[in-house]
Design a protein around this nucleic acid. Structure first.
Lengths: 224, 224
DNA sequence: CTCCTGTATTTTGGATCCAATATTGATAAT
DNA sequence: ATTATCAATATTGGATCCAAAATACAGGAG
């Protein structure tokens, strides 16, 4: 094996930089509100400013950074209000995706979701938080994709991207990871019974719980 | 007056190119499926390929063009299925935006919408189709913005952008223009009475009509 | 005649350099 | 002392040039 070091480097510098920028933002290395100094960042990633700027344009489209002409990019402030808003929008879109998905559900599709779930549980047991988050994402996207509404899925994916920062926060807690596994099992069960509304309810409950968890985690001393 | 020729040129080349590209796509000058030859386009717009590529990245984020590494950009095929899907998503998002908007509706807000509507009617009477489409957009966005959900409004705006091509088709027909004016008046009336669900219904009916109109316009000889 | 292969050409990706704009700081006038 | 103005600096925007990849094409083997 020559280059199987976890992540193989993307075929273009802009895609590489895009991943790195996402990581930098989600891990808090670049903090919300920070202006983005292109020269410094480009040097750090060892690329020129051109691919960096193209990656930033992509992130601008996703709402992770803001842009003003001649003043450059800033990391978008992700307030709790933003998080709540994203969850509200996800609620609307994912509910529709699930309803459509259940109508088109096949055995092969279910098997794919079960494989993703197996990977989630494996990663959880092994304590691989990052892998678990990734498999979790695959689990959900697999379901959404059954809807056969590619634009809808694309939007949902973008919304997930835009709150990656908070997601890693959530998955950092062991009880939350356990909870996710339970919810996935319940979801699979309800899917087998073609009960779309119940699945929608589970997903909604999950989002609500995640928001609450993050709220308390972020504002721990508001009462004391 | 020095540069009041309708549109003043944007402060950056990428924004200028972005507008031009949008226009080229909506007017059919660049047709769906067409690969985008950067060199040729850049020369046509009299800029280098750098700002062109940044504009394309923005359009990629909006779903108007697709991108593959080392193979470049293509104008997204906007099938009728795509149009229907965008309308479905708009239905979900705009309904929520309207419900929130009605809860927060102020007199000043209503006045702004009425001004936009006045401009719509003026442009319609003057036969200025492009101006009418623009005022129409302002009318709706004004309402959506009362929701105070900036990300939601942003998404809706992007969805509107992605179907601009079809919109100009719709507004090209006089009866459609007349219909829009009626619907706006009804909408304003219902807003004054704070009847969110009725507004949602009007908007849904409008979208349904637009889709049907475009379907018949695009496939005129399917029966004969 | 078909298919594979190697090469030429086209097209995209990226680096460097220069221009334009914004920001900062210093100086002077009120 | 405060504010306005102008110069110096930092930062972004864009053009050109070169590298890398993909595509098209020609030639030869089967």
């Amino acid at each position: 094996m020559t280059s199987v070091e976890g992540h193989r480097r993307p075929p273009t510098a802009q895609q590489f930089v895009l991943e790195e920028l996402r990581r930098a933002i989600t891990t808090g290395r670049l903090r919300p509100g920070d202006p983005i100094r292109q020269e410094a960042l480009a040097e750090e990633f060892d690329v020129s400013r051109v691919p960096l700027r193209e990656a930033l344009k992509t992130l601008e489209g996703e709402g992770l950074v803001t842009y003003k002409a001649h003043r450059g990019y800033c990391v978008q402030r992700l307030s709790l209000d933003d998080l709540r808003e994203v969850c509200l929008i996800r609620e609307l879109l994912e509910a529709e995706a699930v309803r459509r998905a259940v109508e088109r559900l096949t055995d092969a599709g279910l098997a794919a979701a079960e494989r993703a779930q197996a990977e989630v549980e494996r990663a959880a047991a092994a304590g691989e938080v990052l892998e678990m988050a990734e498999a979790n994402r695959r689990f959900h996207m697999t379901i959404f994709e059954w809807s056969e509404l590619p634009r809808l899925v694309r939007l949902i994916r973008t919304l997930w991207d835009s709150t990656d920062a908070y997601r890693s926060l959530y998955y950092g807690e062991e009880p939350n990871r356990q909870r996710v596994i339970e919810e996935h099992r319940a979801t699979l069960d309800l899917l087998r019974r073609r009960d779309a509304e119940a699945v929608v309810a589970v997903l909604a409950a999950h989002r609500a719980h995640a928001v609450t968890a993050i709220e308390t985690q972020l504002a721990p001393g508001t009462v004391g």
